[in-house]
Design a protein around this nucleic acid. Sequence first.
RNA 1: GCGAAAGUGGCGGAAUUGGUAGACGCGCUGGACUUAGGAUCCAGUGGUUAACCCCGUGGGGGUUCGAGUCCCCCCUUUCGCACCA
Length: 852
Amino acid sequence: MPYEPKQIEPKWQQRWAEEKVAEVDVTKPGEKFYMLNMFPYPSGDLHVGHGRNYILGDAYYRYLRMSGRAALNPMGWDAFGLPAENAAIKRGIHPRDWTVSNIAREKKQFEAWGILYDWSKELASCDPEYYRWNQWLFLQLFERGLAYRGKAPVNWCPGCRTVLANEQVVDGRCERCSSEVIQRDLEQWFFKITDYADRLDAGLDALVNWPEKVRLMQRNWIGRSVGADVRFDVPKLGRSITVFTTRPDTIYGATFMVLAPEHSDVPALIADHPQRDGVLAFIEKVRNQSNLERQADTAGKEGRFTGAFAINPFTNEEIPIWLGNFVLPQYGTGAIMSVPAHDQRDFEFARQYDLPIRVVVRPRETQLDAAAMTEAFTDKESSVSVASGAITGLGITEAIEKISDDIEARGIGRKMTRYRLRDWLISRQRYWGTPIPIIYCEKCGTVPVPSVDLPVRLPLDVPFTGREGNPLAKHEGFVNVDCPRCGGKARRETDTMDTFVDSSWYYARFISARDSTQIFDSELVNRWLPVDQYIGGVEHAILHLLYSRFICRVLYDMKLVGFEEPFARLFNQGMITKEGYRDPAENMSWVPLTEVETRDGVPYRKGTEARLIPEVGKMSKSRYNVVPPDELIERFGADTERVYTLFIAPPEKEAAWSDEDVIGIYRFLNRVWRLGEQIGALTEDAADPAAAKMIRKAHQTIAGVSVRIEKFEFNTSISLMMELSNAIGEYLGQGGRSRSDARSAYLPLLKLLHPFAPHITEEIWEQLVGDDLLVRSSWPSADRELMKEDVLTIVVQVNGKLRGQIEVDPAADEPTILSEAKGQAKVVPHLEGKTIVKSIYVPGKLVNLVVR
RNA sequence: GCGAAAGUGGCGGAAUUGGUAGACGCGCUGGACUUAGGAUCCAGUGGUUAACCCCGUGGGGGUUCGAGUCCCCCCUUUCGCACCA
């Protein structure tokens, strides 16, 4: 019988679903393993690039199960968001209907891939039973002072009279109507994540099972810097201006001060400036710059002298106060002391406006060198303060310590730690999201919705035009309410929450997804969490993971959970790219191999004259390079897609999809299938010495795959299994007939292969063993004795040149030479243990043996 | 500019602690079986060569009996941050 994936795959998918093999009773005590793929946004069709994430998660899940671990693998839907609303505007479908049908399609796709989830715990963030707890969580943060209202700029389209998300702004214009987008300040809701900046930063140290890259990105995002706030007296104002610096030890070199043009003291400073209008024009220019251009051209530093002076508290000199476009209003105090000798930006600014430069740090050893003077000496080991009063001669670390103490002792400032991280703006002027449970009363002000009134339901009967703001705001029944406190007239908050709020705690909800009495069951959550293995793309390296870590700490402070880190171990899979062809005239998605012709090395689509220009990139409809899984599954089966996806490259790396390479995996699975048929037909049962090599390979493969799968080294695991199938094929091809020997190599292969190709292995297993592989069998273990080589072949090299080979019996305590190399070689064990390296003496000199 | 990762055949990619570089797969070449094959099987496939030798892991130095792997300098690519004081 030929291998026909179309016959066997639905059969097994159905059986797994009927028997609910992935369902886990979380109340059952004992060992646990919680693995989780980041839940998807249901945008519609999934392509093979999306598949990588779920396939590798499923492979790992099946491996865990077979090795006897109680693994929980739930799935849900990050179902609120902008695309649903866009679909409503463009195609007249209600966001809910669009979302629900996408969920159904994607669920079907998961099934077709053979992916096992515990669907009894399925959740969707757009479900009122889910978002009521989202609202409850908001109220908890509000009560704790962690949710507050403040002004923040939004992208405003004057044409559509609505707020735009950043991705809807293209080159400063509205994506839809091309009006120029302006910044407008709105009252919005924030979560005070900055209160947790220090803990979020410190917690990164413990996340040793996260990719180093992600930890670093988070660290940079939080941007912790330790330094000091220092007050500089400004005689003209009759008070002081505070600056933040990480290098208070360089204060003797602070020869001027620079303020952000937005700084609140600026109007007073320039009140009597002779060219006041010019300065105001400059301020206006920088303010407008801050939107787009400030990012585009970081080249030019520009500034204006305010005409005012500050007193350097350590030199007692008057230093000029400038305005500068490079000083950011949001960071620190919006004011800096400039030390041009030791800061690149200050240096450039000083050069441009001819301001004094004074060296106050220099290398301990070197003579003062004019060229080196302008360098920032930051090497804590070798640099020393000079011309700096009491700290002269101290190394940087000691100097910072001493001067900071002096600053505090003199009462002119204090040690300070600041962060780049800003508070989390959670307000969205959008319909398709969790309504913020707040009511504004004319008498009582801002009133939280009592938790008994939750959920605040999102009304479904709203029109979608894409204009005139948030549709929710025009829904009278939603907006007009009675104040829960005084019963008087009030109106509802119409902003909805950022969907990152939904995803910041969903991992805990899975444990008691049907509980309508509480956000989650703390006792069970404390048993199952943190998530033991979290899997998802790097695009969530910062926001989703940082917000989840933040909310987890809030839940910890509320004593709802007993841990501060939600994800113990994190894996980021790489993206799948493919050659695509930019050809807007053609409306094609994936061009199957059979329909492509090559003329002069340029691919053409059959039957057209259009020239197709290859370009490798992310799969997208606009690039016409999307590989839909159904065509692939139709032709080769889901197992082929699964194995290919895992074989293509190390899973953390970006990988280029190749239609041609898929065939190799299909051949491999066909070969495995045929081997099963051949082995099923064998009748001799006696052990066969000729099988030794195959048996050895089998045990080496078991050992190898077991180690690699734990490290997510799926591509090399598959290579090993291919080698084993080749060895079995070789044994049979050379006349091997021992049924028991062949089975003892082949059955472990099926087990090892099951996480990767579950359908075919189940089918063969059923035919050969008459049992269910996933449910009834266990992960194989290797026999060390059977892995040993009979004879080691030793290659003799002298000075890197091949000099011959000898064979050695490794079973002997002292390796015995079985056949001699060229010349008289003598084996001398050189390195102990399992090492394969030995040295030998060739007459006259010591050489090395390399053992294979 | 700063930070991080990576450069290995025609291609995707392998190489415990430094130990025969190129596993495995694609593609390609030759052969077998076939009406035929893009099915299957066998053999080959880094460069050079009839073969041996020799040369080969981005470039240049170094350490070592021995370097893809360790050290120094340079080049390139990708990703992240982008004036964070």
